[in-house]
Design a protein around this nucleic acid. Structure first.
Lengths: 159, 159
DNA sequence: TTTGCTGCAAAGTGTTTGCACGGGA
DNA sequence: TCCCGTGCAAACACTTTGCAGCAAA
């Protein structure tokens, strides 16, 4: 269960370092802090959340640096940007994984579940033929209520 | 082909009028103009686009009125809000249709194609069981290149 | 006449950018 | 040493809000 993705959060730093070396970029303390922040962040952190975490180690860190780093990471495919319509106007990020995965968002408590669905790949291929297009990327988000939130109020466990 | 949806743009006005009557709201000239703007707008207009169209008839119309109206329409389910990650930071709207439909977005020219895919409904049901959740709504967006944009530059028709 | 809706201007939110300095390679 | 990346503040794009007046029912 722990090596089903090509890289875990841990090697984000190593991965980024490698890319930076290749491209003549620099591994700064700020970048390292931001990359490491993914470890303790929620599954789909916003820039703000990563900033809050990364700032703990270095209070001088600036939010714009976080944005710049995230944009760079997204371009290099180490991180992917997602937009949930429930999540206010802000973007969320997750560490990009090779396998396409999709999201369920609970409109009650905001919980996000990830899932993989093989049929999406088939659907993409079918749509490529039907619409005569080339599909590079897809996002599937289900919105609803998770088990806890869909229970009638009376039956819900306190808390 | 013209009655596959429960209501076309035309009766948006009538539909809204009915709801307003029910709720003690008022059918103002501005609301009518905004509702009618959907007719000549693109398939997925932004607030700005609707504003531009609706302003033609009444130059005093204010953008904040458009936003207020759109928010109300979304709440009443006459219109639905969608977020394409390619479309800048702005929301897009379409007239809510009973049948779930999905979108293909061309990253080349920005064209948006709609499609219906029965398999999504099945997938939703399967995920409800697998994740033990209740799914109320889903969005599926495919990103890629349309037929014209995926042709090599040399072969593309001029224009 | 009542009070919901509007225009206006100002505030808000999330994100990006210009610039001079500082620190990594 | 060189110049990439940073902090800072200001700009930005989009959306929301407070308020006084107007107009639909």
């Amino acid at each position: 269960m722990d090596s089903m993705w090509a890289h875990e959060h841990g090697d984000l730093v190593a991965e980024a370092a490698r890319l930076l070396r290749e491209r003549g970029g620099r591994m700064t303390a700020q970048r390292r802090a931001i990359l490491e922040a993914f470890r303790s962040a929620s599954e789909h952190p916003s820039a703000e959340e990563l900033f809050a975490i990364a700032s703990r180690g270095d209070p001088r860190l600036n939010l714009s640096t976080v944005y710049r780093t995230l944009r760079w990471l997204a371009k290099e495919n180490l991180v992917r940007e997602i937009t949930f319509s429930e999540a206010g106007r802000s973007s969320r990020f997750d560490t990009a994984r090779p396998a396409a995965h999709h999201h369920f968002v609970c409109t009650g408590c905001g919980a996000i579940l990830e899932f993989d669905a093989a049929e999406v790949a088939a659907l993409r291929r079918r749509m490529e033929r039907r619409l005569r297009v080339q599909v590079d990327r897809s996002t599937l988000v289900l919105y609803g209520r998770c088990a806890a939130c869909s229970q009638p109020a009376g039956k819900r466990s306190p808390g």
